[in-house]
Design a protein around this nucleic acid. Structure first.
Length: 212
DNA sequence: CACCAGGCAAGTA
DNA sequence: TACTTGCATGGT
């Protein structure tokens, strides 16, 4: 009974860590920017980049789009991969203005599946970034899979090692209630657990809260 | 010093 | 289709 196992793991994580209050951002647009900036990057570094954008007062669609790629790269430098990410942010902004007139509000009323496919076509937005935007910015019931998710759940034999994104996501979305708040909290708790107990070279499985 | 972080696209075989 | 590599800062 997979749904029972997934539910039990969630209960343990919530009991252990409590609410995680994700996504730590003031606006949906800030979530979208953060989702791109945090690709393979420590969140603390992303916060510094976000702070630079706020200090410059450009953390809104027209503001960011008004910068050149080089200016943007300079501001997001602390987040790493700054040249790649500057390009990716501009690709996303081009999409946002082309399809939604630069209005995040217009995205809310759009069909989730259609939106996901649109996002995946943007160069620089892959499955995890797209789903982070859908779940945390647009409040759609979409489960976000990340490196920790696969590592943890393959160790617990709920998915096979090296499982693909869509397959892993399917497991959660088939066996859990499609509930935005549940998916929000579950993914955040997985990241919390991963940071403390499931690092590649320093697994602390002996004292992991999931250990019976 | 080595290793890692809330990935992704492009290149190669 | 399935691997490999480049991208880069800042913390442990």
């Amino acid at each position: 009974m997979i749904s029972r196992r997934l539910g039990s793991i969630y209960q343990k994580l919530y009991a252990c860590f409590g609410r995680q209050h994700w996504w730590p951002a003031k606006s949906p647009f800030e979530v979208m920017v953060g989702a791109i900036l945090t690709q393979n990057t420590n969140w603390v570094n992303v916060e510094k980049a976000i702070w630079n954008l706020k200090e410059r007062r450009v953390l809104f669609p027209k503001g960011l789009y008004g910068l050149t790629e080089k200016q943007l790269a300079g501001l997001i430098r602390p987040a790493g991969y700054y040249n790649v990410k500057a390009k990716r942010l501009r690709e996303f902004l081009t999409f946002l203005f082309r399809e939604y007139q630069g209005s995040v509000a217009r995205m809310f009323s759009c069909d989730t599946r259609r939106l996901r496919q649109q996002l995946l076509r943007v160069n620089g937005i892959g499955p995890e970034t797209a789903d982070s935007i859908l779940l945390y910015a647009l409040k759609k019931p979409v489960f976000v899979v990340d490196a920790y998710t696969r590592r943890i759940f393959s160790r617990h034999k709920l998915v096979s090692e090296g499982v693909g994104y869509d397959e892993a996501q399917g497991l959660f979305m088939r066996h859990l209630k499609k509930d935005t708040q549940l998916f929000n909290e579950y993914h955040a708790l997985i990241v919390r657990l991963g940071k403390e107990f499931c690092l590649k070279n320093k697994p602390r499985c002996e004292i992991c809260p999931l250990k019976h």
